[in-house]
Simulated assay, not measured.
Amino acid sequence: MSNGKVKFFNETKGFGFIKDSETNEEYFVHVTGLIDEIRENDEVTFEVKEGKKGLNAVNVKLA
């Protein structure tokens, strides 16, 4: 599991980005990859999985 912070999340469109706190990498996150509801600036834990357009954050939950 990785730790990070929600940089952006659009609830209407159901996607956003999470910034990894260790590597500073940004990962795309889709509403289907969420366990908990998230908002901008939330601290979260997540796993990284290969998606259609690169790496995606999945199993995202509040830290």
Rank of each mutant, 00 (worst) to 15 (best):
S2G: 00
S2K: 14
N3K: 15
N3W: 08
N3M: 12
N3D: 13
G4L: 09
K5M: 03
K5A: 00
K7Q: 08
K7V: 10
K7I: 04
F8S: 01
F9R: 04
F9W: 12
N10P: 04
N10A: 00
N10F: 00
T12S: 14
K13L: 12
K13T: 01
K13W: 08
K13D: 04
G14V: 07
G14T: 09
F15I: 01
G16E: 11
G16K: 07
F17M: 09
I18P: 09
I18K: 04
K19D: 00
K19I: 08
K19S: 02
D20V: 09
S21H: 00
S21D: 12
E22L: 13
E22T: 13
T23G: 07
T23I: 01
T23Q: 10
N24C: 03
N24K: 10
N24D: 09
E25T: 15
E25Q: 13
Y27N: 04
F28P: 03
V29T: 02
V29M: 09
H30D: 08
H30W: 14
H30R: 12
V31M: 11
T32A: 06
T32Y: 11
L34K: 03
L34H: 06
L34W: 11
L34D: 07
I35M: 04
D36P: 06
D36L: 09
E37G: 14
E37C: 05
E37T: 14
I38Q: 11
R39S: 15
E40T: 10
N41V: 01
N41L: 09
D42H: 02
D42M: 03
E43N: 15
E43S: 12
V44C: 06
F46M: 07
F46N: 05
E47L: 12
E47R: 06
E47C: 00
K49D: 04
K49S: 09
K49Q: 14
K49M: 14
E50M: 08
E50A: 11
E50C: 05
G51L: 01
G51A: 02
G51D: 07
K52L: 02
K52T: 01
K53Q: 06
K53T: 04
G54I: 00
L55T: 08
N56S: 06
N56C: 03
N56E: 15
A57R: 02
N59C: 12
V60F: 11
K61P: 05
K61N: 02
